[in-house]
Amino acid sequence: MSTLLQPLDWSPGGGRYLPATPGTVLWGELPCAGDDPVLTIDPGETVVIDTVSHEGILEDQGRAPAAFFAGHGITEVLRDALAVAAEVPHDPAVHGPHVVTGPIRVRGARPGDVLSMTVLDLRMRADYGIVSSRHGRGALPEQFPLEGAPVTSILARVEPMPDGGARPGASSPWLVGTMAVGPSDDRRVRFPLAPFLGTMGVAVAGSERAHSVPPGRHGGNIDVSLLTVGSTLHVPVQVDGALAYVGDPHYSQGDGEVALTAFEAPLRASVRFDVIPAAHLPRPGELWAETPDLLVPIGLDPDLNVAMRAAVRSAVALLTDLGMHPAHAYAYLSAAGDFAVSQVVDRVRGVHGKIRKADLTDLA
């Protein structure tokens, strides 16, 4: 019996369905104002969106996913991954690696508004994925991959918890990610699963598509691992209709994503799209996120130190909007706020803050 969640294999639990086909995805680019939407919705609608992982279909992996995964002992591959690899234009010298599904036009969204993208559900479409490192990239580009190889692609699996147990607090408590400890070693490391979409965002203004790797005010490849089910990303709208998209699915990622990629594997995402009009915003919108328990300010810059300062400024602004004096917000963040490195591998580095909503009950 197949363990794959193939395209069109879904149960309508609310929301429209957008498969990942050669006609509904971009590979290595993000939408711009000149792109036509593949779906148009009203604010407040939910869309069930299939995503395809770039790992296993890239040129340095042969651009032949069936053969690539067969070399790792995998005999079943998603049909949409095969179609994307065979039919979607992609030049690795020009384009980024990520496959994004969209764009989705949200009626009434205008520049100056904020598009709130809430992740309602994430379903793993496979029980395997890849973690890769490539020369010149990642946190230690001078050291990895080893032995001068251009790319190292390591298979990760989704497996039941040992002895049928559960991992309290995990997104998938009965399942874990596993990976061999060496090329010829049957022992495995086991780690929690926390699926999320590494790429969520809106189209950039103008007629030129953005590269899929560096994140920015448009969102894109932000790789904030907190954006699991129940989270919301708030993105400033830059073009009429927003032209939203999602992609870069992960089953897990450590803060930093040091080896260039994390546990990259395909997801089926249910996302609700809401519009906050500019007139309802206390100041021009900026990129930030939240979970049921946390406010998540985001800072981005090629310089990690500058990204950290940007995240702190964003955190102060969020708390000020909620009613704190800026100096007191700054002091609170030093006493009780947390800041983590989102990723150091996407040209533009990311830092995200973690502010507990429970600390702010007097501001409600």
Rank of each mutant, 00 (worst) to 15 (best):
P160M: 04
D50P: 07
G129T: 02
L304V: 15
Y330I: 02
G177Q: 03
W174P: 03
D163G: 06
I276W: 03
I104P: 01
A170F: 01
H98Q: 12
V204W: 01
D50H: 13
A262D: 05
M179Y: 01
I130M: 15
T152M: 08
W174E: 14
V88A: 04
R187L: 12
P12Q: 09
V348L: 02
A317R: 12
P195E: 07
E142A: 13
A203M: 05
P284C: 07
R356I: 02
R349D: 07
R137F: 11
A358L: 15
R16A: 13
A317P: 01
D35V: 14
V275D: 09
T232F: 15
A317F: 02
A149D: 03
P297Y: 09
G323L: 11
A289G: 08
D163Y: 05
I49Y: 04
S252C: 07
A194D: 12
L233A: 09
A166D: 12
G56I: 04
H72N: 02
P168Y: 08
P22V: 07
V351K: 06
G241P: 04
P215G: 09
A70R: 07
Q61H: 15
G337E: 04
I355S: 03
T3H: 14
L120T: 05
V84M: 10
V246E: 03
R347L: 11
E286T: 11
L155R: 07
Q343R: 07
P192Q: 08
R107F: 04
W288D: 01
A180C: 10
D121E: 12
G201F: 12
Q143Y: 14
D255P: 09
A289R: 07
A311R: 07
E29G: 01
Y330S: 12
Y332D: 01
G247E: 11
L304M: 15
P284F: 00
A93S: 13
P195I: 08
Y251L: 13
H325A: 15
H352A: 11
V271L: 08
A269T: 07
A262Y: 00
D127W: 02
V239W: 05
E147P: 00
T291F: 06
V77L: 06
L58C: 09
P266Y: 10
A83G: 04
G71D: 05
V344A: 10
V114S: 06
T21K: 06
H218E: 02
Q143I: 13
T320A: 08
V229R: 09
D80W: 09
G73S: 05
V48S: 04
L226Y: 06
I355A: 04
L122E: 00
R167P: 00
A210T: 10
P282D: 05
P214R: 11
D127H: 05
T75V: 11
V213R: 10
G62M: 03
S11L: 15
T199L: 13
E264N: 13
P173M: 14
G337A: 04
E87P: 00
P103D: 09
A83R: 09
L140I: 10
I74K: 06
G285Q: 10
G337S: 05
S231I: 09
F69E: 02
S171F: 00
D346E: 10
